[in-house]
């Protein structure tokens, strides 16, 4: 439940701001000049704020579409991401957002049309398939009933021949997708983790079983499905855990509708990692065999290789190799 909504002066009377205000009619409404006044001050505690995040409605002026690292590719040389929202309603302990941002408040940029223009312009500039990732700084679907962003942006992708949209999510908010005709160039990519790990570190996210149910419904409706086993988390029994988990997931998958699978171990930039440990020093994930001396903190090299090799081998017993993509952040 949103108890406070901060709204930038310039979008105070924007139709989307008004709609969101009326949805949360009990919330305190506070006007601000720029969202950064609320979101960026140093002396804030992400962990405390995560108990009761506020919503900030803002206008974005530039950098609507940014290039994504090639290592995140799922089959294209042209990869881009955009963030209509900053922060997530879930509270996954491995998430880099908690190390990157000082505030746990959600920022929603309400000028969706500017995103449309930037996406269209970017897609038109390239003559090969371009992938647009929407779930980088937020979950693509989790707040969809409030934002309606995906409902807004899908028609744009319907008319773009060479543009693919990836919705990355742990959410079960799929009604908006089931209500419309499936799109061959929109991949609904579910982030999945073995149940025991999900319960321990993916706080507030839907349980694995619910995510698989949602995935299956979308698959039946004809939506291309992505599976994101990223991050793979180390624990003593990870081999047993992940082997059973992969089998559990693929028992629900129609390989024809499977667009891609990506695989990567837990990794996070050093500066974010330091913040994350400060926020959650008692977290088991951070007490494990991580190599913290590199620019990107991850498992020790030999262990990382062992985990990836094991998971890749198991996955290739269940799916074709051409749909599997490895995610690395090389130091």
């Amino acid at each position: 439940m949103i108890e406070a909504i901060y709204i930038e002066q310039s979008v105070f009377d924007h139709p989307r701001s008004k709609a969101i205000r009326s949805r949360f009619s009990q919330a305190r409404v506070i006007e601000c000049q720029r969202y950064s006044e609320v979101f960026n001050p140093k002396a804030q505690n992400f962990r405390l704020q995560k108990r009761q995040p506020s919503l900030i409605l803002a206008e974005k002026f530039k950098h609507f579409v940014l290039e994504a690292p090639l290592s995140y590719s799922i089959g294209s040389q042209r990869n881009y991401y955009f963030s209509h929202m900053l922060n997530c309603i879930y509270d996954c302990r491995y998430c880099f957002l908690q190390g990157m941002y000082r505030s746990a408040n959600y920022v929603l940029f309400v000028n969706y049309e500017a995103f449309d223009a930037a996406i269209e312009e970017t897609a038109c500039q390239v003559d090969e398939p371009a992938y647009f990732f929407s779930g980088y700084d937020c979950d693509s679907l989790a707040l969809e009933p409030v934002t309606g962003f995906i409902k807004h942006v899908l028609p744009l992708f319907r008319k773009l021949d060479n543009a693919w949209l990836e919705l990355r999510t742990k959410s079960t908010q799929i009604r908006g997708l089931l209500d419309v005709e499936a799109m061959s160039n929109c991949i609904v990519a579910f982030s999945l983790t073995p149940e025991i790990l999900a319960e321990a570190i993916e706080h507030k996210a839907p349980p694995l079983a619910k995510r698989l149910d949602a995935l299956e419904k979308l698959q039946r409706a004809g939506w291309p499905i992505g599976l994101r086993f990223d991050p793979v988390i180390y624990c003593d029994n990870y081999q047993l855990l992940y082997e059973a988990f992969f089998e559990q997931v693929f028992a629900r998958i129609d390989l024809q509708l499977l667009h891609s699978v990506s695989l990567g171990v837990f990794r996070v930039p050093q500066a974010y990692y330091r913040n994350m440990v400060k926020l959650y020093p008692e977290e088991k994930l951070f007490a494990g065999p991580l190599s913290a001396s590199q620019p990107v903190v991850s498992y020790e090299t030999a262990l990382e290789r062992e985990m990836l090799t094991f998971c890749r081998t198991k996955l290739l017993q269940l799916m074709p190799a051409n749909k599997l993509f490895m995610c690395h952040d090389h130091n």
Binding site: E3, A4, I30, C32, Q33, E37, R51
Partner: peptide, 20 residues
């Protein structure tokens, strides 16, 4: 106070209220 403004500089602060 949900927002504090300094009249002289127009600087604003937003004390986060994490309770009802």
């Amino acid at each position: 106070a949900q927002k504090v403004i300094d009249a002289a500089t127009n600087t604003a602060w937003y004390p986060p209220l994490l309770f009802t």
